[in-house]
């Protein structure tokens, strides 16, 4: 018996050694950024229903604004305005972030007040300056459309209700991922995907420490960060609004003042203008501001250009995205 145990032990050790060696060979050099998956499994019927709802103007009080009005799917999921226009052309408080890859964010909105994509839908629909509607109103309108009544019956086996609507939209948003950016291809082992300049830009992005905040699968989006760690950005800009207090508006705690969700940098080249206030018109501006207020450093012009070049390789592909 003892003899067998010994043999077993040796055999298992050998097995572990083999797998360890094999694993060693398999792993590529570790990077703080990971590529997006090619696709994710979702219920296609729900995705299609969500797409219809996303583009449906009946979600707004006067039937003029759909989700897609501010998150133009073919243009990177943003409206490219500093601040979005809602119903009756009311101007919003903050810049509209992209809906692409939004599911990888730690929370939704700049201040992270919604946890999941489902909860997020309540926000724009009810906000007076965005859609200015309410669930009874929206459900009432959708119920008049036999097509929706049929689809909801088929897919959810339930009458139209806010929970289903939110789930459909969120499922659609989950389908909005943009894999196959040049940088992702580089991560997946295609050494020729990046030019030497771009690769240098990536090295600088890492060595300057942008990577400390913008990292992970979404190159950002996985944490909250004070805007203005080294220096008071808001004082320098002037004209502080309620929205500038960021996460403080949600938690009411002093240390959350001026704290925002770190935005994802995927597709950043096509989502100008930048920051929650939409104050940076170009990537160069944004990178300079980042360097000054987030890194507490001044970067040479040349390095900024290289980083911008790197940021431009982050634009991925999706069949509805036509940059």
């Amino acid at each position: 018996m003892k003899k067998h145990l010994g043999l077993l032990l040796i055999f298992s050790l050998w097995l572990i050694l083999c797998t360890a060696l094999w694993a060693q060979q398999q792993t590529r050099p570790q990077e703080p950024i990971t590529p997006l998956p090619q696709s994710i499994k979702l219920d296609k019927a729900k995705v299609d229903l969500g797409r219809m709802l996303f583009h449906d103007k009946r979600f707004s009080k006067d039937n003029t604004v759909s989700c897609a009005s501010c998150h133009i799917i073919s243009k990177g999921g943003v409206d490219n305005r500093a601040k979005s226009l809602g119903v009756k052309n009311r101007i919003g408080e903050v810049n509209a972030p992209t809906v692409y890859n939004a599911d990888y964010n730690i929370a939704q909105f700049w201040d992270g007040r919604a946890n999941a994509l489902e909860d997020q839908v309540d926000g724009p629909t009810h906000k007076p300056i965005e859609m200015d509607s309410s669930w009874p109103e929206i459900v009432g309108k959708l119920k008049k459309d036999p097509k929706y009544v049929r689809l909801f019956k088929e897919i959810y086996n339930e009458p139209i209700n806010p929970t289903n609507i939110k789930n459909a939209i969120a499922t659609y948003e989950r389908s909005l991922i943009t894999p196959n950016s040049r940088f992702d291809r580089y991560l997946l082992g295609d050494k020729n995907a990046l030019t030497p300049d771009e690769l240098k830009g990536y090295q600088l992005f890492k060595s300057y420490g942008c990577i400390a905040c913008h990292q992970g699968i979404n190159i950002g989006g996985n944490m909250f960060q004070t805007f203005g760690v080294f220096g008071n950005y808001f004082e320098d800009r002037g004209n502080v609004t309620q929205a500038d207090y960021g996460r403080y508006n949600v938690t009411g705690r002093k240390q959350d003042r001026f704290v925002f969700k770190v935005p994802s940098l995927r597709n950043v080249a096509i989502t100008a203008p930048y920051f929650h206030d939409g104050s940076a018109k170009t990537l160069t501006d944004a990178v300079n501001i980042m360097a000054k207020y987030q890194l507490g450093r001044t970067l040479p012009k040349k390095d900024v250009e290289l980083i911008v070049k790197f940021l431009q390789t982050l634009t991925g592909k999706h069949k509805e995205l036509k940059p």
């Binding site: 730690i106 420490g209 400390a212 905040c213 996985n222 944490m223 909250f224 960060q225 004070t226 760690v229 938690t251 240390q255 704290v259 890194l295 507490g296 450093r297």
Partner: peptide, 20 residues
């Protein structure tokens, strides 16, 4: 959750400074 979120925020900044 609150503590972890705060941890991440402070950790990134400290990391950058220690490296810089």
């Amino acid at each position: 959750k609150r503590l972890v979120v705060a941890f991440m925020r402070n950790n990134s900044i400290l990391r950058n400074s220690v490296i810089y």
